[in-house]
Amino acid sequence: MDKSTQTSGSKDELHIFGRPWTYQVERLGPIAAVIIFGAVVGIIEPRFLSARNVINVLYQAATYIILAVGMTFVITGAGIDISIGSMLALTGILMVFTIEYTPIPPWLGIWVAPLSGMVLGLLNGLFITKLKVPDFIATIATMIGYRGVVLIMAGGVVHYRFPAAVRFLGAYRLFGLIPISILVAFAIGALGYYVYNNTYFGRYTAALGGNRESAILAGIEVDKYKILTYVFMGFLAGVAALVTIGRLDAFHATYGEFMEIDTIAAVIIGGTALFGGYGRVWGSVFGALLMSMVVNGAVLLGFPYFYQYVLVGIVILVAVSIYTFLGTRRTT
């Protein structure tokens, strides 16, 4: 029987800290990009690393980090959520109306945003699993539908000047320095990482995104976990609404438009596979941070506005090229 004893591991590959080097590059790539980009721009334009600017970048990144963590789960489950911007706006206006027009105290009223987000996400999930509408189509439909409700409710009126409870998450700083929103964003990143690796929800989301048939054969209720990814996404869209509204201390019906593009870009830059099965929560966090840094850095370095778009496009292409290269190595 000795001849059957197999001791060779995965294909002969250089391993670093017990994992293939390709994995390590994937895992550490986004954070390395953040550090390198920050250092390079900081050397050229020292004000890039000034406290005020760093805080500005973190404020700007927080919303996208929160959204990107949710989107990581959705994409890992082989889904996509185009409606997040509209969910952000709808959960936002629901919260604003609750606080402005009901006697519910603000500290309680803010919970309307994440809770209503869960309901909107649940609807997305039900349309996709029960009505069998493809994820992309279903969430395009709700993107339009949810936005319609926002416009009906808010019209063109800007709501502004909210109580402290609303502003707390988006605008306050710990010790007058570190934005609460970025702490919350990183906490959500850490929570997302834990959930991805340690919970049944995380494991089964990856399984159903990686090989749906296999997940079904293993007795996993794939629809339930698919729905849960959208509920989680909706919840985080509500949190992102709180952060955005708190930061701007205002609400307008166009909030969140096109945020899905930047969020999906951040997730892709972070190394999550677009077709499911393989999520990188921390990658998404740093991907979102990198996107904000690139836009801000381009402004500080005096890039004309339209070139900033080109720059972000290049970042996405470079990131995806690297992952594709590593992925090709892995499967050959």
Binding site: T5, Q6, S8, S10, E13, H15, P20, Y278, R330, T331
Partner: peptide, 13 residues
């Protein structure tokens, strides 16, 4: 009767 090293790698590896 097998020992797989690196069993935390994705099985596709």
């Amino acid at each position: 009767n097998m020992e797989i090293e690196n069993f935390n790698d994705p099985v596709i590896n």
